[in-house]
């Protein structure tokens, strides 16, 4: 294949940048959707029903899956390449360079945590919802009771009543925060839309985006956990 997106370093990075950008946009959409669950279970379930296993939701899911695969496979290819470029002999002493963020040097590790979290999340939700519908079913057994494939609110309630899920999800969100705090400004840099004037702005934007995403997702998890503990509502 003789395409710069495949055989040049800058091209490969562009693929990371664009796929990453699309995933961030999806995450923002997902977060907004989640937030409705805080206010109204019915509203949330309406959205679940709307998406369900309709053709556009399926196309969207397939697209997202492809983005995740591309983002991850390219990350692996680039990382292996980078590891080799570093040479066999490593420095005996390494000191952190001033002004270099921890996240920027650990994007692969953070990415893997995010991916593992994603798989867990898919098993908790997607496997009980869209997958069930794809397989022709309408409900599945969760924790000893049958839950409808469109009853996302019930799944949320159930999942975050367990403290260990809360902990795992929060770890996942923290990893995502770090990943995005570098990734969001970095995608502009890779695409060539950055300069010394814009670095502070872009880094500020990255921090705002990653923090909002963290807070949005974490709020749902924490609120549902607290609700479950009170048992009042």
């Amino acid at each position: 294949m003789n395409c710069f997106l495949y055989n040049s370093s800058v091209g490969k990075k562009l693929v990371m940048s664009i796929s990453g950008c699309a995933l961030v946009l999806f995450i923002i959409f997902h977060m907004s959707m989640n937030l409705t669950a805080l206010f109204s279970a019915e509203a949330y379930n309406m959205i679940c029903e709307l998406l369900g296993a309709n053709w556009y939701a399926l196309v969207g899911t397939a697209g997202l899956a492809a983005l995740v695969v591309v983002h991850f496979v390219y990350a692996l290819i680039l990382s292996i390449n980078n590891y080799r470029a570093r040479g066999a002999q490593r420095y005996a002493v390494e000191t952190k360079e001033p002004g270099v963020s921890w996240a920027s040097k650990n994007m692969l590790v953070l990415g893997v945590i995010v991916l593992v979290g994603l798989l867990l999340h898919l098993s908790h939700f997607w496997a009980k919802m869209q997958l069930v519908e794809i397989l022709g079913g309408h409900e599945s057994e969760v924790g000893g009771q049958m839950i409808a494939a469109t009853d996302g609110a019930a799944l949320i309630q159930y999942t975050f009543s367990k403290w260990y899920n809360v902990v795992l999800y929060l770890i996942w969100f923290v990893a995502l925060w770090f990943h995005l705090s570098h990734g969001v400004w970095s995608m502009f840099q890779t695409a060539g839309f950055a300069n010394d004037t814009w670095y502070p702005r872009l880094k500020c934007l990255a921090n705002i985006v990653s923090t909002l995403i963290f807070l949005g997702f974490a709020a749902v998890v924490v609120v549902f956990f607290i609700k479950a503990q009170c048992g009042c509502c």
Binding site: K13, L78, N82, R84, A85, E97, G99, V100, S101, H182
Partner: peptide, 15 residues
């Protein structure tokens, strides 16, 4: 020549 790919850490600029 086998150089790696930039991941925008900014370590180069710092050093």
């Amino acid at each position: 020549l086998g150089f790696g790919n930039c991941t925008n850490t900014g370590a180069c600029q710092a050093e």
